[in-house]
């Protein structure tokens, strides 16, 4: 923007302009810094207020620091354990640990659901209609905290079931027919 000043005619004019432009520039810079500061403050304070650990069932049960904290937790739903009281809108089910490293989510979910040694944790969700996707081998992502009774009280329940729609083909059916 300094180059703009030299476009003005006459040496004295240039000087006056340059000073004025300098003042304008300072104003813009201060304004910009104020905005930047305000936005940074918003984001930092929001992050501090809204941050939640996103952990596995193993993390939850093996580490003291998560007890009583609001966390997000991921686990696989065990279909047999789902109990839904439609009168009072209480959903109870159990989730099992999904290892944090895996190649393919669908396989990891299936393995976790069938592994008898996987850590399990009971979950309760209150005040919600049973979601459509709550079913065996679905991945549940829960927000809430662990109660003293060892039950995880979730206020938010997000479900994914990749295995239903994406994976697999007609192998079994066709193979059976061939036999």
């Amino acid at each position: 923007m300094a180059t703009q000043a030299s476009w003005e005619k006459g040496a004295s004019g240039t000087k006056i302009r340059a000073v004025k432009r300098g003042g304008e520039r300072l104003k813009f810079m201060i304004g910009g810094l104020l905005i930047l500061g305000a936005v940074a403050f918003l984001i930092v304070s929001g992050t501090l207020a809204g941050a939640q650990y996103f952990i596995t069932v193993d993390d939850m049960l093996s580490n003291e620091r998560y007890a009583g904290e609001t966390v997000r937790i991921s686990g696989v739903v065990l279909g047999d354990s789902i109990r839904y009281d439609s009168q009072n809108l209480v959903i109870d089910f159990t989730i099992a640990n999904i290892p944090s490293q895996f190649d393919d989510l669908a396989t990891a979910l299936r393995d976790a659901a069938t592994d008898p040694n996987a850590t399990r944790m009971p979950v309760r969700v209150e005040g919600q209609v049973k979601p459509d996707l709550l079913q065996h081998e679905a991945q549940a992502i829960l927000t809430g905290s662990l109660g003293d009774d060892g039950v995880f009280y979730a206020t938010e329940l997000l479900l994914k079931c990749p295995s239903r729609f994406i994976e697999g083909g007609p192998e079994q059916v066709a193979a059976q027919a061939d036999a």
Binding site: L42, I43, G50, Q52, I55, R72, T143
Partner: peptide, 18 residues
């Protein structure tokens, strides 16, 4: 080495002033 997510609370606090 941990996973931190920001829930709806974050967005409800940060975006309204903007």
């Amino acid at each position: 080495n941990t996973n931190i997510t920001l829930g709806a609370d974050y967005f409800l606090q940060v975006t309204p002033p903007l």
